[in-house]
Amino acid sequence: MAARILIVEDDAKTVELVRLYLARDGYRVLAASDGITGLNIARQNKPALIILDIMLPGMNGIEICRQLRLESGVPVIMLTAKTSDDDKLAGLDTGADDYITKPFSPRELAARVRAILRRLPGTRTPEIIKCGQLTLDFTRHQVTLNGAGVKLTAVELKLLGAMAAEPGRVFSRSQLIEQALGYDFDGFDRTIDVHIGNLRRKLRLNKTNTCFIQTIYGAGYRFVCEPEI
């Protein structure tokens, strides 16, 4: 069965353009022109990926993404005319996996959709990784910490899986981008920092600063199985 992609966008021409390119790749495309309808369709149809505008009637894309992240790790690509770094960081900080600004190349958007779906967890990592109180189960796309489930986005889980598969190794930003995003980087260096920041927040032990991911200043990040405070 073809994967379902949901487009939440109030510009009909943009919807049809994106629909055309995604349909060529064999995806089944769903669409909504306002935020509330888009959120309801996402909840009812469980799409494989969501392409989400920020400026929408009814409910904006940031709030939709925030609501989705309380419920699932469905990949989200922000597609918006808001172009500042602060706007990009706001989108990524709510849990979006990628951020594309308008005007955009539909071919690039389709390529990024393929890249994210192709890199859903499970490739090039063991099926299960256990580090103390943390367990990563890639066959079920589940992460547990102290026995409780942790909701991660597809990119977050891919990042965590890449690092956890080689504990102690220092990964540069460019290496993590290649592992988790899988397309040519456009120079927005803080993208990975935002994803890592989200991971740290979600993986804190006992609401302290104890974390499995360490910053190696000037070099990148590494995963440790026995985190230190």
Results as ranks from 00 to 15, higher is better:
residue 146 N to Y: 04
residue 138 F to R: 11
residue 138 F to Q: 09
residue 160 L to G: 04
residue 149 G to A: 08
residue 143 V to W: 00
residue 157 L to C: 08
residue 174 S to K: 14
residue 169 R to N: 07
residue 170 V to N: 10
residue 149 G to H: 01
residue 173 R to G: 14
residue 175 Q to T: 07
residue 175 Q to L: 11
residue 164 A to I: 12
residue 155 V to S: 14
residue 162 A to F: 09
residue 138 F to C: 10
residue 143 V to A: 10
residue 168 G to A: 05
residue 135 T to G: 07
residue 148 A to F: 10
residue 138 F to G: 09
residue 164 A to K: 11
residue 139 T to W: 08
residue 141 H to Y: 13
residue 146 N to Q: 14
residue 168 G to Y: 04
residue 174 S to L: 14
residue 153 T to F: 11
residue 138 F to H: 15
residue 169 R to W: 00
residue 159 L to D: 04
residue 141 H to P: 00
residue 150 V to F: 01
residue 160 L to A: 06
residue 138 F to M: 12
residue 145 L to C: 06
residue 153 T to P: 01
residue 159 L to E: 05
residue 165 A to M: 09
residue 136 L to K: 03
residue 158 K to Y: 01
residue 148 A to H: 14
residue 136 L to M: 09
residue 141 H to C: 08
residue 161 G to D: 07
residue 170 V to F: 12
residue 150 V to A: 02
residue 163 M to I: 06
residue 175 Q to A: 14
residue 159 L to F: 04
residue 150 V to W: 00
residue 152 L to H: 01
residue 154 A to S: 13
residue 153 T to M: 05
residue 169 R to S: 05
residue 156 E to A: 07
residue 168 G to D: 05
residue 171 F to E: 04
residue 141 H to S: 13
residue 174 S to H: 11
residue 137 D to A: 07
residue 135 T to K: 11
residue 144 T to R: 10
residue 135 T to C: 13
residue 155 V to M: 14
residue 171 F to W: 15
residue 165 A to H: 07
residue 142 Q to A: 10
residue 136 L to I: 14
residue 155 V to Q: 10
residue 167 P to C: 03
residue 142 Q to C: 02
residue 165 A to Q: 07
residue 147 G to V: 02
residue 152 L to V: 01
residue 144 T to N: 04
